[in-house]
Nucleic acid binder design. Structure first.
Length: 575
RNA sequence: UGCCGGAUGGUGUAAUGGUAGCACAACAGACUCUGGAUCUGUUUGUCUAGGUUCAAGUCCUAGUCCGGCAGCCA
């Protein structure tokens, strides 16, 4: 069980419902949940919330959670996604054990149940063309009217349904409708389509079927067949719940009638099983990004990002490549909470969560992104190497030796000829501590033809020198420095809500969301393994890219910047 | 203006009739061989109007505003 938070558990409404159900002995006190993605895209941070809730509730209450591909629409679904989804869920830290399913596993049972509905007068084959159905369905404020086929004989419907399955009709020619209530104020109850004809190859069942169940019909059956007790989904399905319940009631009434065939549809727990119940919670939404699969696909297809796993994407594979950890994401989801309120969470909270984790775990290294040469004039007694802690937050991480020399590179912004007030770094005549290696006092500077500083000449003092300085800067030894490719990422969009604006969301793409530079790093950095995470001290957290890093030549992706109160104050001054 | 939800600081969330708390953000300070981390403090909130009650964010009534629903998508 995952318990990285020692904070008291927030008894959100889903936990309360589950605890009440256990107390009441519903479903024999079992808790079975499921995470049911449609394999038509990659999982994103919004799905992470659903995954943490679905798997988390099962873990907490001693139950199990199924991973189920909701593959009822072969026109949109692909194997690529089915594989990626499993990888992402596993990476997030969850385990479905043997409980990996496909909705398509139950097509036989769903079909048989549909026939039972026909026989019970609860469903009929309808020939009203799709375009005409708008008139029959009516509008929310006005009731619909009944299909002319609504009361056709049971035998006729059953025969037509069988011929639909046999492939005798074209797509759209006929469909199977549940016979419920055309006057219902809930549109979903106005004789919804439960089976449609689709002549498409299915990624899992191939060409076996040409009739496919609709979500509203299939989902409750999938849940019931698997013995799911709590079917947790997002709030847009709230208005579907009466239909969900209608399907379940009809199913359970057939089961309770002792129909031997019906029992075979169940793969789990049909004994002492009261049936599943649907409960809805609000989706996760984040600032400075988009969350719909359609829009993410648009970014990928238009090559506005390098792919689904571009480190700027809010996809789980993108976040993983960016250097985010499962722990950080799980903590983030727990912090955001579970309610029915449509909220917009600031991306700053996500960034806080990854900093919190990486601060504890990432090894420290030194690297200079924009170098400025420093020459030490008193080069006689310099140490060849200096020792540094790998992680001041974690003594167990040990220490390392860093080569030192009379030629250093420092960050260009760590030297200023004419410093502003409270600038604690290197200035002409001033002193500064250099991390792990004593002090530098600037004696003079060399400039090029246009007056730019090209070399800062300094006197070095050992760490034992009692120099009073207010700042510490990072450095690398120039002759030992390893050039490494560093990709600096920023937010993908320039506005907090790129969605829902008058202009297209792509208008707000941040043109500076990726900047590639060559940084100069201490030698240890060149040995970084793919996926290894570091803090380049005073700069940011980075991860060695899993795709583009080569042995001895890592490529670093910027994960999240360190907090920088100096930069913030300077920025505030300008505005 | 049909039906279903929802409304607590800038953001997210807690308080289940009894002191409106926590986290992020912002701001100020302490400390610091990372202007990081850590620590301390400050600012900012119950949608409105009535009612019930000794006591209302919570219960009741009426409004206001926001979200969702009219695919043979999920």
């Amino acid at each position: 069980m995952i318990t990285e938070n020692s904070a008291p558990v927030n008894k959100h409404f889903v936990r309360q419902i589950i605890e009440a159900d256990i107390a009441a002995g519903r479903n024999g006190g079992r808790v079975v949940t499921r995470f049911p993605p449609e394999p038509n895209g990659y999982l994103h941070i919004g799905h992470a919330k659903a995954i943490c809730i679905d798997f988390g509730m099962a873990q907490e209450y001693g139950g199990r959670c199924h991973l189920r591909m909701d593959d009822t629409n072969p026109a949109k679904e692909e194997m690529e996604y089915i594989n990626a989804i499993q990888e992402d869920v596993r990476w997030l830290g969850f385990d479905w054990g043997a409980h990996f399913y496909h909705a398509s596993d139950y097509f036989e049972g769903m079909y048989a149940f549909a026939e039972k509905l026909i026989e019970r007068g609860k469903a009929y084959v309808c020939a009203v063309p799709q375009d005409d159905w708008k008139d029959y369905r009516g509008v929310p404020t006005r009731p619909g009217k009944e299909s002319p086929w609504r009361n056709r004989p049971v035998t006729e419907s059953r025969d037509l349904f069988r011929r639909m399955k046999a492939g005798e009709f074209k797509e759209g020619e006929l469909c199977l409708r549940a016979k419920i209530d055309m006057a219902s104020p809930n549109i979903h109850l106005r004789d919804p389509v439960i089976y449609r004809i689709l002549h498409a190859e299915h990624p899992h069942t191939g060409n076996k079927w040409c009739v496919y169940p609709m979500y509203d019909f299939a989902h409750p059956l999938e849940d019931a067949f698997e013995g799911v007790t709590h079917s947790l989904c997002s709030i847009e399905f709230e208005v579907h719940r009466p239909l969900y319940d209608w399907v379940i009631e009809n199913l359970m009434s057939i089961v309770k009638s002792g129909d031997a065939a019906a029992v075979k549809w169940f793969v789990h727990d049909h004994e002492k099983y009261d049936g599943p119940q649907q409960n809805e919670f609000a989706r996760l939404d984040l600032t400075f990004t988009v969350m719909s699969k359609r829009k993410l696909l648009e970014l990928v297809e238009n090559k506005l990002v390098s792919g689904w796993d571009d480190p700027r994407m809010p996809t789980l594979c993108g976040l993983r490549r960016r250097g985010y950890t499962p722990v950080a994401i799980r903590n983030f989801v727990e912090t955001v909470g579970v309610t029915k309120f449509n909220s917009l969470t600031e991306v700053a909270l996500l960034e806080h969560c990854i900093r919190e984790d990486l601060n504890k775990t990432a090894l420290r290294r030194m690297a200079v992104l924009k170098p400025l040469k420093v020459t030490i004039e008193n080069a006689e007694n310099l140490p060849a190497t200096v020792a540094a802690q790998n992680n001041p937050e974690d003594p167990v991480a040990g220490t390392r030796q860093i080569p030192f020399s009379h030629e250093l590179l420092i960050e260009a912004e760590d030297f200023m000829e004419v410093p502003p007030p409270k600038y604690f770094r290197l200035t002409p005549g001033g002193s500064v501590r250099i991390r792990n290696a004593g002090f530098l006092t600037c004696t003079r500077v060399e400039k090029d033809a246009v007056g730019a500083v090209t070399n800062v000449v300094c006197r070095w003092s050992p760490p034992t020198a009692e120099l009073k300085v207010k700042g510490t800067i990072h450095w690398v030894s120039a002759p030992h420095a390893k050039p490494v490719t560093v990709r600096l990422y920023d937010r993908l969009f320039t506005v907090p809500e790129p969605d829902g604006q008058e202009l297209d969301f792509k208008t707000f793409l941040n043109p500076h969301s990726l900047e590639q530079v060559t940084a100069f790093a201490e030698p240890a950095v060149a040995e970084a393994k793919r996926g290894e995470k570091f803090q380049f001290e005073r700069v940011a957290y980075f991860v060695a890219d899993v795709h583009d890093s080569q042995p001895g030549a890592p490529v670093f992706n910027h994960t999240v910047t360190l907090k920088d109160t100096w930069a913030k104050a300077e920025k505030a001054k300008k505005h």
